[in-house]
Nucleic acid binder design. Sequence first.
DNA 1: CAATGCGCACCCG
DNA 2: CGGGTGCGCATTG
Length: 205
Amino acid sequence: MRETSTAVTNTNAIISGGTASNEVTAEVWREWILDGIRKIRSQKQRPSTQRICQAIGSHHKFHEDIVAVKLEEAVASGALIKVYNKGLHTYKEPMAHRVISVAQETDLSKLVSKAVRELGECEGSSLKSIENYMQKSNDIELAPGTDFKLVIKNAVKNALAKELLVQDGKLYKVGKFVMRPNARKRNSKTPKKDEDDSTLNVSIN
DNA sequence: CAATGCGCACCCG
DNA sequence: CGGGTGCGCATTG
């Protein structure tokens, strides 16, 4: 009616305003997103922002940027997880993991390095970020009186010792032995020898 | 053209 | 080995 609009040039004025995408609750978005993801997965395709946007589009048309924001919100609320895989991001429904019992001395170094890898933050991930991801991507059952933060801290410390992680200021990145999956290149011609396999012997031929 | 279907290469445990 | 994943291409709307 009122919009003779042609301009899609609007910047994002919707983040917390009162516009179209906001008459939809977060739960509804979550449902759309999760449905979309299931559909996309069943099509054997990557649940990327664009694909999810398309899938949702069959319900209601939204611009990809809007959907992107909603995806990030869902991630922030823990209703969704975002993982880094093969050079790109993928949104996933949080897995219904087996319950992991965690007590004060539990060593989660393996899991925290996995968390860092999956977070895929180029700058590295903060302790807080790691902690959040750990809670979202696992079903963690804390033993009474356990300080989860401390457990994470120790896990990171251990991971550093094992070179599963490396420290960069306040941030942590994956060590070189927990390498990222090759960024989209199936044609694996890597006759390139590792230049620094000094300490660990990689039994490649 | 976009959307969907799917074989199978790839990765990781 | 076993199971999940998603690329790349075929197929369909």
